[in-house]
């Protein structure tokens, strides 16, 4: 049996796990995005299912409520013919009983090829990765990282704008509660990795204590020029922590109001990781925004997660050849 130390950590081609965009690296990002093109093609087939991961078992372990990410991973695994298991537990009940390590080792003993982990604690997937030989995919940890969301965002921008390479020259504003957002951390990382100019737009209270990236507290100064406006979910409990005075004031300063929507460039994209707080960060009907690609993000999510699962678990490690043929 190989020891954990001898196993490869996440990162370069042939790696076992996907924990963060940083560990995936530029080459890894491009590989996943290119592979996702093949998956989109699979998903367009009348029978959108291939036998690529037949015999593999993917376990979704969700310690935090999530609907779309869990369904997206389940669908992705099934379209690749993997068997899926789902383990959902509120974090509080875990505190009372079994430790995270015991939970993971118990499930691992059932024979699992990949864990898809969502956990409220930053870093939990890194711990799981130490305890298991299986692949670990970070489906969101605390405020820290959500790499598959970032990849689907990058994929959505790249395909919508018909780019084949990176995102050089694009001006992207990520607006909202950056401090508490794993989406903001991972998505800004992938956009920057692909060459875009990213500005984080938020009041000081909703930015991390120390930020390397350009920031602004003035959305109106940027809105005319952005190529991508990425809105983050604004949670109402932030008011109780005195991070913003009121949701109304938040919308006034940082929401996508009809006035601001009218100032967007004609082909500017509007993105949101969901679930949306209508009337707060998005005070217009996205169906009426020509540049809104929010539903495309969701459907691309399946293709991108198929690409990730295939990259980590597929016998060809990223070779699209094994995507031929169909599965019943």
């Amino acid at each position: 049996m190989t020891s954990v130390e001898q196993r490869q950590s996440a990162g370069p081609r042939g790696s076992r796990s996907l924990l963060s965009i940083d560990e995936l690296g530029t080459d890894g990002v491009f590989r996943i995005l290119d592979l996702a093109d093949h998956m989109v093609e699979v998903n367009r087939r009348p029978n959108p299912k291939v036998p690529a991961l037949r015999g593999k078992t993917v376990c979704n372990v969700f310690f935090e409520d999530s609907t779309r990410t869990r369904l997206s991973f389940e669908t992705a695994a099934k379209r690749l013919s993997a068997d899926t298991m789902t383990f959902s537990v509120a974090q509080s009940s875990l505190n009372k009983g079994e430790s995270l390590r015991d939970t993971i080792e118990t499930i691992a003993a059932m024979g699992v090829d990949a864990f898809v982990i969502r956990h409220g604690s930053s870093g939990a997937p890194w711990m799981v990765d130490k305890w298991t030989q299986a692949s670990v995919i970070n489906a969101g940890d605390g405020w820290h990282a959500h790499p598959t969301q970032a990849l689907l965002d990058a994929y959505t921008v790249r395909t919508t704008l018909n780019r084949t390479g990176g995102l050089e020259g694009l001006r992207i504003a990520i607006v909202g509660d950056v401090k508490h957002s794993r989406v903001a951390r991972s998505t800004s990382a992938v956009f920057r990795l692909l060459g875009a100019d990213v500005t984080l737009v938020a009041p000081r209270t909703l930015l991390p204590p120390v930020v390397d990236e350009p920031t602004s507290e003035n959305l109106d100064a940027l809105i005319d020029d952005v190529d991508v406006l990425y809105l983050l979910r604004m949670q109402s409990e932030r008011m109780n922590e005195a991070l913003v005075p009121s949701l109304r004031e938040y919308t006034t300063r940082f929401g996508l109001t009809p006035q601001r929507a009218g100032r967007l460039k004609q082909n500017a994209l509007v993105m949101h990781p969901g679930p949306m707080n209508r009337g707060v960060e998005i005070a217009v009907d996205p169906a009426e925004l020509p540049g809104a690609v929010i539903t495309q993000q969701v459907s691309n999510g399946i293709a991108v997660r198929m690409a990730v699962l295939f990259e980590l678990l597929g016998s060809g490690h990223g070779s699209a050849d094994t995507l031929e043929g169909s599965s019943e």
Partner: peptide, 16 residues
Amino acid sequence: AVMHEGECCSKLGLPG
């Protein structure tokens, strides 16, 4: 809070 508030906690997404 989990760690010192500064650059590292900002990157790691941990309360400082």
